[in-house]
Design a protein around this nucleic acid. Structure first.
Lengths: 206, 206
DNA sequence: GATCAACCTGAGTTAAGTTCAGTTCAGTTT
DNA sequence: AAACTGAACTGAACTTAACTCAGGTTGATC
């Protein structure tokens, strides 16, 4: 396991600006549909300068995905750390999943739309490192959920079921929202959050 | 609304062969990762011959997606047409969703991985026609599910909830499986089907 | 004020999708 | 049987966007 070291920001570094611009472009226009040079323009540099920070357009995408996965995991841990009751922990975890900024909505959308990238391996080392790190984080997040379910089951709060499969399903249900949800759309995220929270509890606890 | 006319197969037509090869390639290797010329090779024609049948690689993808959506809708209708009880109809619909051939698994995977293509409009007419047709079929399938829920709610079999949102969630839960499921994997589809069937019933009916 | 690394650029390369200008083939007409 | 027709096909050329290269600029540090 190669640990990815976040490059510490030199004072002139545009890495963060590139990531932000890329999230906006990839999230709204789609990864394939946005030209790499457009991202450069938006940041205010020539397109070749991008290669100082990222090995390729895909490398940037994988980085965005990894960062978002890390964030999801962190939020899960933070939200569930001091909930004694499994049902409350489950509710808190779901609420945390939807407690996101508009930027993070885009990041989740990007992540969901390109999960398939994480299966096949990559040619270049830095891309492959990001891919492997992201893949591992996917498993970490899956474990977050299954562990929560296992705890609840062993405590008698949830009926016994295949925790692996049920965990994947709960997670799938939660993230499926990012395929269609738009901040500008008719349904506010709070409403989504409440409905899914209830649905997850019924799925798992009844 | 422009109706898409399925080109009637001339005796020498390789359209079906191309679609089959493309499903295999796109499903296993991924759409972006497979070279259009590889599909041609597999069919046994030069790459330019592909353009006799499809306007572009994307046009072929959109066609695959539309056909799969049509199939999903047809199966739903077939499975639910003679179930009087809403709970039984729901169960039948879920089972139908997982009653698929290996080829259809690939098609569902392709469909899920490229849903985002259906949002933005396309340059060329034939592509755009396929996109619009597919988009409409998505709405048809969504309506299939919400209608099922509305019926159950008005009949008192399901508690009253936002049927639109709950329908989208049920559908999201069901199709989320195609992101990770592999016929060669450890979990048989029958097991998935049973767990999701139960989960959907609890989500909707309790 | 020399040095070094981070940062940036314009010009050129590459790869994959696509277009073009025809050619082949199988069945139909005269 | 020869001419005709449209579907099916091809090799060569074109296009575009990602990427490489060889070198130039900037600014902090010694």
């Amino acid at each position: 396991m190669t640990r990815i070291v976040e490059p510490e920001a030199g004072p002139r570094s545009k890495r963060a600006a590139i990531l932000t611009a890329a999230v906006d472009c990839f999230g709204e226009t789609g990864f394939e549909a946005t030209k790499w040079s457009t991202v450069a323009e938006r940041v205010g540099i020539g397109q070749t300068a991008l290669y100082h920070y990222f090995e390729s357009k895909t490398h940037c995408l994988l980085t965005i995905m990894r960062l978002e996965l890390q964030r999801s995991h962190d939020r899960f841990v933070e939200a569930t750390k001091d909930a004694a009751d499994p049902v409350e922990a489950l509710r808190a975890a779901v609420r945390a999943a939807y407690d996101v900024s508009p930027q993070e909505v885009l990041q989740m959308r990007i992540l969901q739309n390109h999960m398939d990238l994480l299966s096949g391996s990559r040619r270049s080392k830095r891309e492959e490192d990001e891919r492997v790190a992201a893949r591992q984080l996917v498993q970490v997040v899956e474990r977050d959920w299954t562990t929560l379910l296992v705890k609840g089951m062993s405590q008698g709060s949830f009926p016994l079921r295949d925790a692996q499969l049920l965990g994947a399903s709960v997670l799938g249900l939660i993230v499926s929202v990012w395929r269609w949800y738009r901040p500008s759309g008719p349904t506010p995220l709070s409403e989504v959050s409440e409905l899914i929270e209830g649905a997850c509890v019924r799925m798992v606890a009844s």
